[in-house]
């Protein structure tokens, strides 16, 4: 049962291999893919490994101050996101990275894999929604930037076209409190039953929210965010929210969820968990 593997050494190499083998499966950390292969749910005929492509790994910051953007290579592992510069630049992403599987899994699993798999439960995805990240993808002829909210088209479906590769994630640096909360029936190493990311931008005076595991894709809560941004009192180093507005925010975020019943939890539980997490996340971010 041969499974030929092309080990790409550059993005161009990977893209030409993809062009030569349109049915090929892209392998990064393998933490989603190999589970499917081992379970017999997927039988790749050709594998293109991108984990050793230098351009795809690593973290850099473009620009300064308000305009700065963190550029995270698609093959960067969660182990690298959970500590180091991300804990300062995008703490919610570091918190989310910490909740991915076990340390062994985090040493292998990549943020690009999280995106390409496009599971509504992908741990980094609500953070990317809350921060308004952009996904850089490369095709045979060009590169394009896809806003995060347009990237997911359904459960395990994305806007990635055939022959395209996720190259990097562009995450705006935002000055202000951030957090990530994830409900699971275990204290670690668990698929999210519901998750929520929040990111406050004290300069732009905006609030971003991303929700996981409560819809066919990671979701935002733009109405709730717009409203709370109007209701909050903004200062240079914090925002203040009165209790009625906070409760209203939690209800509105919960209303943005589109949860279902499954073996991990009920829709009712999930919606309520989103409400509770939204209230607590805002409490941590404000005064």
């Amino acid at each position: 049962m041969a499974m030929p593997v092309i080990v790409a050494d550059s993005v161009e190499h990977a893209l030409s291999a993809l062009a030569d083998h349109p049915d090929a499966t892209v392998l990064a950390g393998g933490t989603d893919l190999m589970v499917e292969v081992n379970d017999g749910r997927r039988t790749p005929t050709q594998v293109i490994a991108v984990g050793r492509v230098a351009e795809l790994t690593g973290i850099r910051v473009d620009g300064h101050a308000e305009g700065a953007t963190i550029v995270i290579g698609a093959a960067t592992t969660f182990a690298r996101l959970e500590r180091g510069p991300i804990t300062e630049l995008a703490p919610a992403l570091a918190y989310a990275a910490r909740t991915v599987g076990s340390p062994q899994i985090r040493n292998a699993a990549t943020i690009g894999g999280n995106l390409a798999t496009a599971s509504p439960a992908g741990d980094s995805l609500p953070v990317l929604v809350a921060l308004g990240a952009t996904i850089e993808v490369a095709g045979a002829n060009d590169r394009r930037q896809i806003p995060i909210v347009e990237f997911f088209t359904g459960p395990k479906r994305s806007a990635l076209a055939p022959g395209e590769l996720v190259v990097a994630v562009h995450v705006p640096v935002r000055r202000g409190p951030q957090d990530y909360l994830k409900v699971g029936v275990r204290n670690a190493m668990v698929i999210a039953v519901a998750s929520l990311a929040i990111a406050v931008d004290l300069d732009a005076r905006t609030v971003g929210v991303g929700l996981g595991s409560v819809g066919p894709t990671p979701l935002g809560a733009p109405d709730a965010c717009a409203r709370i941004a109007e209701q909050a009192r903004w200062d240079t180093d914090h925002l203040t929210v009165d209790p009625a507005a906070a409760a209203d925010f939690a209800d509105q975020v919960a209303a943005a969820a589109r949860p279902i019943d499954d073996h991990r939890g009920t829709a009712e539980y999930r919606r309520n968990a989103v409400r509770v997490m939204a209230a607590r996340a805002l409490r941590r971010c404000g005064r």
């Binding site: 909740t99 909360l181 994830k182 409900v183």
Partner: peptide, 16 residues
């Protein structure tokens, strides 16, 4: 927070 219910998921503060 890791020692509270929810663990790595950071869901609870002491007051909760």
């Amino acid at each position: 927070v890791l020692a509270r219910p929810g663990g790595a998921g950071r869901t609870a503060d002491a007051v909760d």
